[in-house]
Design a protein around this nucleic acid. Structure first.
Length: 273
DNA sequence: CTTTCGTCCTGACTGC
DNA sequence: TGCAGTCAGGACGAAA
């Protein structure tokens, strides 16, 4: 599932083939993903040069030479597929981009929870979907005190709180469990009780868990493109996620699965408090 | 304001 | 072998 590390890896893979390249052909194969494409979507992108591809939260941002940016979210099942030359199209290939070097990028998204929009690059942070998103966890403005402040007064569980993109950007269901495990904090603990040293530990755990996953993504992809052209997915080394019933890697406990807010949480009840 | 919950969608998997 | 039912999950937007 695309969380920050997967999106980061996809963005890096895209950067390699798109930055400095002109989009010579853009085609949408249906009128909407999660929402309709903006008016004139393909036409507005065609002929544009891509200056930069980066990530913000779980969004991919491709800055163009006309002051606009393509904003894309992979949703649950969105995949970016790169190939040299025109491939056989597959089911759920919804958007096709072709560069002046002959690279073809397909956005394939079975569940269509993904989205694409065009936004003035300068106004990106004011975009409806970006506005209000919290700090980048791997950036300098995320720290124990910053996290503590965001959790202050929050009556939900700490698990639900760090899934909230307003608290911290880019953490999804998998890395929420992984970060809490690493910080030895119970996912059931009330968010407002995570202050001081606990918040410090959790902020650090979030950084470590995400950084490790980004590194794994980078190192496991040759040129960031797998044999099948798919960008951004890689072998994960989860400690607790989907490990229900298995031994805790660090104590005598067994990993348990609970449901919080309709989402699975995995944790060790004996070493997470 | 905060928090919870339903919803979108399809593929993978389970059980009969 | 087939088919119905369940589950997965990001994040909006409605409801409480």
């Amino acid at each position: 599932m695309p969380e920050l590390p997967e999106v980061e890896t996809v963005a890096r893979g895209l950067a390699k083939r798109l930055e400095g390249r002109k989009l010579v052909k853009v085609e949408t194969r249906r009128g909407d993903l999660r929402w309709p494409f903006p008016k004139g979507f393909a036409k507005r992108l065609t002929g544009r040069r891509v200056d930069k591809v980066r990530r913000r939260a779980k969004y991919i941002v491709a800055e163009l030479d006309d002051g606009n940016a393509l904003l894309a979210h992979l949703g649950m099942s969105g995949r970016m597929l790169l190939s040299k030359g025109r491939p056989e199209l597959e089911t759920h290939d919804h958007v096709i981009f072709e560069t002046d070097e002959g690279w073809v990028l397909r956005f394939n998204d079975a569940r269509r929870f993904g989205m694409m929009d065009i936004v003035a690059t300068e106004k990106l942070e004011k975009h409806k979907l970006i506005k209000g998103i919290g700090p980048e966890p791997l950036g300098n403005d995320f720290s124990g005190p910053v996290l503590a402040a965001a959790l202050k007064g929050k009556k939900t569980s700490i698990k639900a709180a760090i899934l909230d993109q307003k608290v911290v950007a880019g953490v999804g269901n998998i890395y929420a469990s992984e970060a809490l495990y690493r910080a030895r904090i119970s996912p059931k603990r009330l968010a407002y009780t995570v202050q001081g040293d606990r918040a410090e530990k959790l902020a650090l755990a979030i950084k470590i868990v995400l950084n490790e996953a980004v590194a794994a993504g980078g190192s496991s992809l040759r040129d960031y493109v797998q044999a099948d052209g798919e960008l951004g997915y890689f072998q994960h080394k989860w400690r607790v996620y989907e490990k229900e019933g298995q031994d805790c890697p660090d104590c005598a406990g067994k990993i348990r699965r609970i449901v919080q807010g309709g989402r699975s949480t995995f944790y060790c009840p004996s070493c997470q408090r």
